[in-house]
Amino acid sequence: MTADSAAVLASEARALTAEAVSALEVASSVAELTAARPDLLGRGSPLTGLRRRLGALAPEDRPLAGRALSEALATVESRYDARLEELRAAERRRQLEAERLDLTELPEPPQVGRLHVITQTLQRLEDVFSAMGYTVAEGPEIETEWHNFGALNFPPGHPARDMYDTLYVDHGPPGSTLLRTHTSPVQVRVMVNQPPPLYVVAPGRCYRQDTADATHMPVFHQIEGLVVDDGITLGDLAGAIETFTTAYFGPGFTSRLRPSYFPFTEPSAEFDVQRPDGTWLELGGCGVVHPSVLEVCGVDPERWSGFAFGFGIDRLAMLRYGIGDLRDLWTNDVRFLEQF
């Protein structure tokens, strides 16, 4: 057996390197490549095995041969890493390609929940008044005759009661209990239960003996406002209405008050909203709370004054969305409900 020399070792290393590199290239998957790693670079690999023969070399040959071996290992190592990277990228490409989807395929129409247009309108109104410092009060839909009429300055037989086509229910003595015809009884409940200052709105459902058609329903929604404080004036009412008008309808909308009549306010007014195109929309009724109403509710009319207003919510919703027939609000046809 001939003694090894640096040259022999280096030449073998070169050959083994070439073998290893071609083996790397042959591996066709990450798994194959990583499985081959011990044979190429592991402790038992032929290239690593050459190290064991370094000790047998003449001392002056060792550095040279050692360097040659290290270089060979480094070459294989770097070619291995490069190949691994290449195979991983290819596999990722293949996998991603296999996962390709058409995102315009929608199997089911989506189920989208909606709030009823009346609820949305009501919430919007509540939010506008909340921002103006009003709290939200509520009252029963089945009301006593006293709260709905008596306390509001409609004595029995008063002709103004005819303005309301009242529905009565069979509870208590005949005529004592009714479906509230307006949200105004909530005014009474608030004043009886809370001391001034009061800044309150009361949205809710009201009822009238009406035949359903495009503009009438026996049930409808109103919102009532009540302010009782020190030195409240008709000018305050006009200002509050104007603030609301701009906040709810937007810039360019203004309001006006016209004298009117309600038993529970005096002076009383209708309030209209002018659209930016100059046309007017009659919105609701309002006025300075009548001293008799304050008194009945336990509020001293010489000490406090107040204003109240009320208007329909359904018509606001109809106007905003261009709904032509009031009955559509109540059909619950999903083709209606899904539009809001």
Partner: peptide, 28 residues
Amino acid sequence: IDVIEEVGRLWSYSRIARTVPSSPHSGG
């Protein structure tokens, strides 16, 4: 109050300066 209403009506509601009362409550 009836007479007050007549003064306001003949003077014209539209000539009454608008003021906004400020609520001492936070509202909501």
